[in-house]
């Protein structure tokens, strides 16, 4: 069985490593090439958010399996300033870090499950899950 990968995200090089790892795990789980690209892109966005907004954090990428389906779960956690207005951060066009502002809303659109928790001053945790064949 595939094992989970936990990585420290601190620099833009770590973003590359994270998305490569994510692609590999997605491939092992059995995702199509198109879905592998989606997962790698989502990971790239989440990892960049960590670097840009919090300087450093952690990312856990793991295969998930239930009786009826399998997929990949990604948890991105940072200990930065947190997000004050999550609703605004999830609206298309919102950005405070000089990005296009498509990172979070775009990521949310391409995954099956999306959860974001933030405590201002303590950090942000985003968890996404993508299932095969959905």
């Amino acid at each position: 069985m595939n094992s989970a990968s936990i990585q420290t995200i601190r620099s833009d090089g770590d973003i590359v490593v994270a998305r490569q790892t994510g692609r590999k795990i997605a491939e092992d789980v059995g995702f199509s090439r198109a879905d592998q690209a989606l997962i790698a892109t989502a990971i790239s966005e989440l990892a960049r958010n960590i670097v840009v907004y919090a300087n450093s954090g952690e990312m856990e990428i793991s295969p998930v399996e239930t009786v009826s389906r399998s997929g990949v779960r990604v948890t991105a956690q940072d200990y930065g300033p947190g997000i004050l207005d999550i609703k605004a951060a999830l609206a298309d066009g919102f950005s405070t870090g000089g990005s296009l502002g498509l990172g979070l809303p775009g990521t949310r659109r391409i995954v099956d499950e999306f959860d974001i928790q933030s405590v201002p001053g303590e950090g942000v945790t985003v968890t996404i899950v993508k299932w095969i064949g959905r």
Partner: peptide
């Protein structure tokens, strides 16, 4: 731009 990349970009709104 590869097909998978094109698709991912479009779905992300890029």
């Amino acid at each position: 731009i590869q097909p998978e990349v094109a698709m991912a970009m479009v779905l992300l709104g890029l």
